[in-house]
Amino acid sequence: MAASTTASQGEMDASRVPIQWRDQCSALLIPLNKCRHKTLYAPWKCEDERHGYEK
């Protein structure tokens, strides 16, 4: 059985995910946004998270 890529409503609310981004890949978007915020959106950071989300 594959791991779920959909975050719960509570997780999305807590992470302030905009409604238009609440789809089946929301569980991958949350760690990506946390990494982006932590690294001040540096384009060379968070590559693993970004590639996972984009794939």
Rank of each mutant, 00 (worst) to 15 (best):
M1K: 11
M1P: 01
M1E: 03
M1R: 14
M1I: 03
M1N: 05
A2D: 05
A2R: 07
A2F: 04
A3E: 09
A3W: 00
S4M: 12
T5R: 07
T5H: 03
T5Q: 11
T5D: 02
T5G: 06
T6W: 00
S8R: 07
S8C: 03
Q9T: 08
Q9L: 05
Q9H: 06
Q9A: 08
G10V: 00
G10C: 09
G10P: 00
M12H: 02
D13S: 07
D13F: 02
A14C: 10
A14N: 12
S15I: 04
S15L: 08
S15C: 13
S15H: 04
S15R: 10
R16I: 01
R16A: 11
V17M: 06
V17I: 15
V17L: 13
P18F: 11
P18S: 10
P18D: 09
P18T: 10
I19E: 09
I19C: 03
I19Y: 07
Q20S: 07
Q20C: 07
Q20R: 10
W21C: 04
W21I: 00
W21D: 06
W21T: 01
W21H: 08
R22W: 01
R22C: 05
R22A: 00
D23E: 10
D23R: 12
D23M: 10
Q24N: 13
Q24Y: 09
Q24F: 01
C25M: 11
C25N: 14
S26R: 05
S26C: 04
S26I: 02
A27E: 04
A27R: 08
A27Y: 02
A27T: 03
L28V: 11
L28I: 08
L29H: 06
L29S: 03
L29Q: 05
L29D: 02
L29N: 01
L29K: 10
I30V: 13
I30D: 00
I30G: 02
P31L: 09
P31M: 10
P31K: 12
P31N: 06
P31F: 08
L32Q: 10
L32H: 07
L32Y: 08
L32T: 09
N33M: 13
N33C: 12
K34A: 08
K34E: 06
K34F: 04
K34D: 02
K34G: 00
C35A: 11
C35H: 13
R36V: 00
R36W: 08
R36F: 01
H37Q: 15
H37E: 07
H37A: 14
H37M: 14
K38L: 13
K38H: 05
K38D: 09
K38F: 02
K38C: 02
L40R: 15
Y41M: 09
Y41E: 13
A42C: 09
A42W: 14
A42P: 03
P43M: 15
P43D: 12
P43F: 13
W44F: 12
W44L: 10
K45N: 09
C46M: 05
C46N: 04
C46R: 12
C46F: 04
E47M: 15
E47P: 06
E47K: 15
D48K: 15
D48S: 15
E49H: 14
E49Y: 12
E49L: 14
E49R: 15
H51E: 07
G52Y: 04
G52S: 12
Y53H: 10
Y53A: 05
Y53M: 05
Y53T: 05
Y53P: 03
Y53G: 01
E54R: 14
E54M: 12
E54W: 01
K55H: 11
K55W: 01
K55S: 03
K55C: 05
